[in-house]
């Protein structure tokens, strides 16, 4: 064997190895990529809105678990702690919770008890209500102990849960065959408006293999939107209109009923 041949074989092997290492992750990625779409991209909240359902469907290769995270726009909150004073309960200490999601729901194909996710992935991606990061910021440069800020956090999450704004729905994703899945995202009556992010994750053996994010727009529509925007932007003109409308309603009522 000549040295030239040896060199070309070596080069060929190098090229092979190089292409193997450089292309293989891409190939794996292409194979295990998750594809998701929504039945609609916007949810109009009209005057008659009393909750809605939104279909999310997609394809994911393999038999991994699917997790859908529906996260609403950021919102600031005021938390007031009630204190007893002379037998009456009134508001005492004030705490702010800054930029917490106004809406947060987790839908999963797996069961609640299953330990199908590593705690690292859970904590990193806010995969459960327990892991959701909430910024409790005391007023006036105070410092809260862990247990105290945990108390505010728990109360906040409890409140959001009771209003149907936060929740976890295990086993809510239907898998059809080997590849397809679908989930009906339930949206409650008091759905906050704004831009939502729907993130869908493919999880296998405790690791996130692939993810896709889709925006969802929840907006006021119809007369409700007109009234709200008008009241926000031109509050005094809105007040004036409210006065005129009430006067007109009063006159009309008098004409219809009192006048004989």
């Amino acid at each position: 064997m000549s040295t030239v041949m040896l060199r070309s074989v070596f080069l060929y092997l190098c090229l092979m190895l190089f292409s193997w290492f450089s292309l293989s992750p891409a190939r794996v990625y292409a194979e295990e990529r998750i594809v998701v779409d929504l039945a609609r991209y916007d949810v109009p909240i009209s005057t008659g809105f009393s909750g809605s359902n939104l279909l999310l469907f997609g394809a994911a290769p393999g038999d991994g678990d699917i997790l859908v995270k529906l996260r609403g726009p950021a919102q600031n909150y005021l938390v007031l702690e009630k204190k007893r004073f002379a037998g009456l309960w009134l508001n005492g200490e004030r705490t702010r919770i800054d930029s917490a999601p106004a809406f947060f729901h987790i839908f999963t194909s797996g069961d609640e008890g299953d330990d199908w996710l590593s705690s690292f992935e859970k904590a990193r991606n806010d995969f459960s209500l327990n892991d959701l990061r909430i910024n409790v910021s005391p007023a006036k440069s105070q410092f809260y102990s862990y247990s105290k800020s945990q108390k505010f956090r728990d109360a906040f999450i409890r409140r959001q849960r009771n209003l149907g704004l936060y929740g976890e729905r295990p086993k809510s994703i239907d898998k059809l065959g080997n590849n397809l899945f679908r989930v009906l995202l339930t949206l409650p009556a008091g759905l906050p408006t704004g831009t939502y992010i729907i993130e869908t994750f493919l999880v296998s053996e405790g690791k996130v293999l692939s993810a896709q994010a889709t925006p969802l727009f929840v907006r006021r529509s119809g007369s409700g939107a007109v009234v709200f925007n008008f009241a926000e932007q031109f509050s005094f003109l809105y007040g004036f209109c409210a006065v005129v409308l009430a006067l007109a309603a009063g006159f009309l009522a008098n004409r219809l009923f009192v006048w004989r």
Binding site: A231, S235, F236, G239, F240, A242, A246
Partner: peptide
Amino acid sequence: TANATFLQAGFNHAVDIVLAM
């Protein structure tokens, strides 16, 4: 009440026309 309505709407965003009607 006209004055209160006007000011409550203007300063406090506290008047809901749909509810009132």
